[in-house]
Amino acid sequence: MRDEAVIVGAEIAAGHDGAAELLVTLRYPNGGRAQVAIDAEAGFALMRNCGVSDLSGLEGQPWRRMLEGAETCSMS
């Protein structure tokens, strides 16, 4: 098992505001799982950062790909 969280799935989901969102599932080294919903901008950025053109390509990507390109205020 890898020693950091990885993406294990991504599905299109209906957002509260009626927009399509990406529901990304991550698995952590202890076996725990978490989901985070991201908007279109972040979703397409994630696909670009991972160099994939299909959602299935996100599987196995490290969690930090999700932060790449994000305009952070305190962490790089």
């Binding site: 952590y28 985070v36 972040a42 962490m75």
Partner: peptide, 25 residues
Amino acid sequence: LHIFLLRKPAGLLLGSDVVFIEPPL
């Protein structure tokens, strides 16, 4: 990740934030 992906600027810590201090169970 909710502190980075659901706000601008990403990583801005807010007083009302829930900050997990362990991974998902």
